[in-house]
Design a protein around this nucleic acid. Sequence first.
DNA 1: TCGGTAAGCTGACTGCATGACAGGACAAGT
DNA 2: ACTTGTCCTGTCATGCAGTCAGCTTACCGA
Lengths: 215, 215
Amino acid sequence: MTGQVRTVDGRVAGRRGQATRQKLLDCLGEMLSSSPYRDVKVIDVARKAGTSPATFYQYFPDVEGAVLEIAEEMAKEGAGLTALVSGRSWAGKAGWQTSEELVDGFLDFWRKHDAILRVVDLGAAEGDKRFNKIRLKILNSVTGSLTESVKELQSKGRIDKDISPAALAGSLVVLLASVASHQKGFQSWGVKQAELRPTLAQLVHLGVTGKKPTK
Amino acid sequence: MTGQVRTVDGRVAGRRGQATRQKLLDCLGEMLSSSPYRDVKVIDVARKAGTSPATFYQYFPDVEGAVLEIAEEMAKEGAGLTALVSGRSWAGKAGWQTSEELVDGFLDFWRKHDAILRVVDLGAAEGDKRFNKIRLKILNSVTGSLTESVKELQSKGRIDKDISPAALAGSLVVLLASVASHQKGFQSWGVKQAELRPTLAQLVHLGVTGKKPTK
DNA sequence: TCGGTAAGCTGACTGCATGACAGGACAAGT
DNA sequence: ACTTGTCCTGTCATGCAGTCAGCTTACCGA
């Protein structure tokens, strides 16, 4: 399934080559954290990795191509976020705990992949299908499970019939994603990190169950 | 207060100069809508405006500087979003209407300024204070009013005391903003445009009042 | 009407990044 | 030692960034 790693000109990469490739990806990742995406240059990445620009182009068509590579990697890890929702209960105290853990898991993941997620978000918003696919892969892992939960509760009459479960689940997930990526922005509103957690958990619980949580 | 428009080298811009400057801004705006931010070149903007790169640099230090200019302009318009919340009622049917109109107004604004908002969002997420300031200026116009509404309802005991009004208002506003900027992404979840509106309105109403809306 | 002055624009230049290529260095097997 | 295939880099053509001197245009007072 996962074919061998290949260079741009078709050769099969060996041990040494893979190491170089990975080093380039790592350095690119670091650069994305420290400088604006628009200013990241191939030459800088190469220098940081102790190699030459030509080497970079042996493994990636351009900066964007390498970013996609990092993003794919992250998306694999992101698939694990499903566990935050699937098989969890939304009733009573357990429901509140589900909410809290979902929020925590999400914020942690976003904090960890902060820089690369910014770029993925931009690419997706600009209409690039490859980036959108990656973004969806991550969000879907949560949205899918959440949609099921909403449908179930809706069938019990707890949520209005004219609400689309997918739209609701999607909105909540997007809410988490964007709060996560603008955590710093909240500080300007005098909102502390610690206040964000319960607020989001409350919103999620309200959205999914239509009820205030019992703690 | 608003000093005269000046060129980079300190000259005062006259009628013709202002027109050229504006044309450059317009063309940059168009380019941002049609191609990725990273690929927008000064030379292309200049060509599109029927002038030379050197002229561009007479009015702006670089692409980012010009983008900030467009963004400031947009932020002024965005200040008008306050009207969507301030002085509105959150009780009964009127509350539901407030919710709906807030969502509509927000989505419209975002759709209209789609391209530039993407860049502002990126800049803010990357930690650039100037972009963050602009982003906050827009969001604050709504968050401020919404925070007041939440505080008022909280004092009536309708919302838990341990919820920070600012955090709640901020989260809701950020929810609107991010759903707006990824409207296309929702289509992949099989969510139609028309379903988004009521879902968001419901979430906003739930968040602010803690109750399901009466329609 | 006629300079004088400041605004407005651009050609030309330097420097740097991109991206392609050919060929050298190196490791492994025979 | 020789061959083979991987791996890296020097070099080069191309194109954009950003600066400057100098030319053109518009305005204004005498």
